[in-house]
Design a protein around this nucleic acid. Sequence first.
DNA 1: TGTTCTACGTGTATCGTTCTACAATATGCT
DNA 2: AGCATATTGTAGAACGATACACGTAGAACA
Lengths: 351, 351
Amino acid sequence: MDKPTSRRLGGRVTIREVAEDAGVSVAAVSKVLRDAYGVSEAMRLKVRESMAKLSYRPHSAARGMRGQTYTVGVLMADMKNPFFPELIDGIDDGLAGTQYLPLFGIGHGSSSVETAIVHAMVDRQIDGLIMIGQRLATSDLEAIASEVPVVVIGHHAPDAATFDSANNDDERGGALVVEHLLAQGYRRPAMITLGRNDLGHADVSQKREVGFIDAMRRAGFADDQIRIAPADDGLDDVTATVRALLEGPEPPDAIFGWADYYALEVLSAVRALGFRVPDDIGLIGYDNAAPCAFTQNGLTSVDQFGREIGRQATRLLIERIKGRTQAEHFLVQPKVVLRSSSAARVTQPDA
Amino acid sequence: MDKPTSRRLGGRVTIREVAEDAGVSVAAVSKVLRDAYGVSEAMRLKVRESMAKLSYRPHSAARGMRGQTYTVGVLMADMKNPFFPELIDGIDDGLAGTQYLPLFGIGHGSSSVETAIVHAMVDRQIDGLIMIGQRLATSDLEAIASEVPVVVIGHHAPDAATFDSANNDDERGGALVVEHLLAQGYRRPAMITLGRNDLGHADVSQKREVGFIDAMRRAGFADDQIRIAPADDGLDDVTATVRALLEGPEPPDAIFGWADYYALEVLSAVRALGFRVPDDIGLIGYDNAAPCAFTQNGLTSVDQFGREIGRQATRLLIERIKGRTQAEHFLVQPKVVLRSSSAARVTQPDA
DNA sequence: TGTTCTACGTGTATCGTTCTACAATATGCT
DNA sequence: AGCATATTGTAGAACGATACACGTAGAACA
């Protein structure tokens, strides 16, 4: 018969051992751990000391059975978008100094995968969920939001009451693109974007389309002069669509790619077809992701201040976790960042 | 007083309710869940039916208290490397058809952040851990490996007994670069890579350096003709180093950037300084990440078959989880993929 | 002195699952 | 028939933390 005091399991230090070492009750240690009410300074110190001495780490799975896990889930639509790291940096900013730690899931642009990941996260008792560019419908989101606090990024739902959102004003951004291109002297802008999907107006790409169309109308273009060409991402599809645009009748003199990762493929296609940027054709993206600044890309883009969006999303989430139930929707105003890809016509007014 | 049979908590269906519905014991349901021994076909069917009917999902946190969570952790060094998505695809391949689900952590290139994330994952009772390009020392790895099955990617430790690894042969890859550049007619290749760090020969960039140096020697270069310039990543540092190389005495006629994400910055710097690629200077990267194929990059690169590496890493991890204790180290042979950035001299033999 | 309040601690049921030990029944072998 | 051995199922104790309901000591006040 062993001493009953030394029965530790699997080498892991438990709250019980800490309590023994500090000479207090298990409940007291738990309180210290959670910064809960009813702990004297002396006790807090004593317990923290024992925890450090034994290098105790709370067992999240066990925590999850009764209380919080101090884990927030972050669902990313995919890994290939160079804009997302900026959002993640913002999320890290927002989490710094808290007990919370982010764990990521990758949706690979499939709503069934996303659903599976969200379920898995909920099953693992995450305390909150940030979804970046997810493909789920608002109704699905509300179902999830009833189980766990949710903040979405890249999905406009200003009327949603059960979850929060953090976004830039994509509709305004779409308009900025038109204003910028016209100011640079371009006369026949076209947009190229993802093929039709069933996301309705929540989807940011569609918001950008709407802004683009409205601004074109305001600038005096007739509806049949406003061109929005669809292409799935990937070099093959984008190249085919770009070729159809540029080698067809009345080719555009500038192209707006709905997002940077996508506009960089457009740039590749344009160059592969033998056109010069910006002399033959202007180009602008959206996000102002890091690679835009590379000399070989020099891509003008609409900055949506991703880091700030990430920060705000995190703030909203933590507020939700702490108990806020009224929805809040954060919106930041985007801004055009000029680079060489759209700088052509500025010196030669009117064609 | 409520019927004691209908006491479900927080809206969640539990194993108890499934058992009740199917008319069997809780233990039996658990067995079905785990595909454990001692369940008749009839019972399996009955239970699965009840689970579907009640749309039961096992509570991972509770599982974690006794058994597995069926979650594997994946620690990525950072988010900005366009090669990693390929590895992730491979990991997804390997996990497809199993019960396991990956959750990701992002280390931001800091070993303290990495340690925190690994701890958090272990505390959450992950069943296994894949580490991609991590910065921890082999000794730290062994400590972690004693708590949980570990497979590393991008870290050579062929003698490690407590964890597995999956890699390409980076030393051979470094040599391939030299052979390729010389075959293309370049005469003064240089390498540019990360600044000194303390990772010793485990680090893949150092393996590539070793291969580069050895191949240069074999080709007849004296040691003082073999140039390896350090630069931290980021356009500023890379540009400064590239300028020093190209505007200094005896400038190289080709540059090997240690990884693609980094070589694309080199390309940006080279162009910003007014040099033409490949005419003035050849360029080659490593990884054969997706953006290499863009026309504006056209970056020759060493393909290390990331998807296969991801697949193998996952296979190794699952084997470990199932009980294998003998270490296994997978190695794939890399291959040069020619693009325009190094195609210059092939038509004009010797300078 | 007695009463009430507040601050600080404790004991212990509980969370949803797994897993060990064992019971009950069926099957195989002499 | 009698006994050993599979096979299939059950009961109930963990697992490690949380949180509720209390207990107690001391201060404040009449």
